[in-house]
Write a protein that binds this DNA or RNA. Structure first.
Lengths: 142, 142, 142
DNA sequence: GGCGTTCTAGAATATTCGTAG
DNA sequence: GCTACGAATATTCTAGAACGC
């Protein structure tokens, strides 16, 4: 019934995380979290490094050159960030971003079809669920 | 009555744009727009370049290492972006960001005090002003 | 009150038609119609010629490389095509596309602000007008 | 209370695809 | 084939919300 549009954001993300040529996107050790190294991603995927590189491996996968656009997409498809950065003072270099979605797990390409863009209608549904669960705090919705 | 807190964001911005040692923040030719070169700013002000530089001139001016935080601050203080991406024909990379505020102009440090953080209360004020002016379309509020 | 967003499609179009460096977009002799030469436009503005040129004059003005996207924008902003092509005759030489809008005329930059994107709300207005005129077929709305 | 930082969402425009006429 | 438009996604700019100081 539902098939995946290979041009959609989830499909591109799945391709990137499983491509051995893409070093900026990869799984955590358990295969439950998506790790993205921003600096490297901007260079090798968006092709917008400080030296003006062209995207080598994944040419023109995205039209944007800004990482914030990728973040917006991740949120639009229901990903959430883990490891909220606590004013990272540790290294001068940034840790990778940790993102999670229940429908994005290693070796489970079958789940990707459930990654739906949060459109207006779908967001209303979520808000209703949340509101109801707030009013009936002892109950759980399926 | 109102004095400027030298630790506030507007004060830091004013210092940066007028510092000859800061090459990533500068005025446009008319002194009406604030120009910021993201890549350079991240390196020389936030000290978070890909090579792990330490902020040289302006050490620890900000606690963040992410440019998005600077953008959030700019918006919170009423700056707006002009000339988004294109129409800048120079190199392949890094057109500066153009930001504008009526209270941020070259040679006018006296205006900086008017840069107020848009907090909840102040935003309500603005909304009320707008609403009233909609209902009384012939009138102007001070 | 209303000012023009220099990044919007109408602003870009106005810039192109008045730029002497852009040979693919120009006025008709009366200054009432917008003429676009598709092949040349694709090469010099969209930077997607058969030889893979980079957009020379107007680099990255648009993110698309397809002319159909420009046509969609023209329609979204209320332009209509004149001279519907009657079986392009004899030869690969393409006539320019003729487009018209009452708010796009030579020497009248003041009209450009009236070029509004046909958004949902504005389209509803139109639909209401149409619906009413369907129910009251004898009447005409101004 | 205010301010700075982070993550997420709203709103508008831009781009693509499909499909009536 | 061609034009126009609806609908969905993509990109950008701005704002909301939560938390810590």
């Amino acid at each position: 019934p539902d098939s995946i549009n290979p041009d959609s954001f989830p499909a591109k993300l799945w391709w990137l995380v499983n491509s051995p040529r893409c070093r900026s996107v990869y799984w955590d050790t358990r295969g439950q979290e998506l790790l993205i190294e921003e600096q490297l991603f901007v260079r090798e995927v968006l092709g917008a490094g400080p030296a003006g590189e062209e995207a080598a491996g994944a040419a023109n996968l995205f039209k944007t050159k800004r990482f914030t656009s990728i973040v917006r997409q991740l949120n639009l498809y229901g990903f959430h960030k883990l490891v909220k950065e606590p004013l990272a003072r540790s290294g001068p270099i940034s840790h990778p971003h940790h993102y999670h979605s229940p429908h994005f797990r290693r070796h489970r390409p079958d789940l990707v079809v459930h990654l739906k863009r949060l459109t207006r209608a779908r967001k209303v549904k979520v808000k209703v669920k949340v509101a109801v669960s707030m009013e009936l705090p002892g109950q759980l919705l399926p």
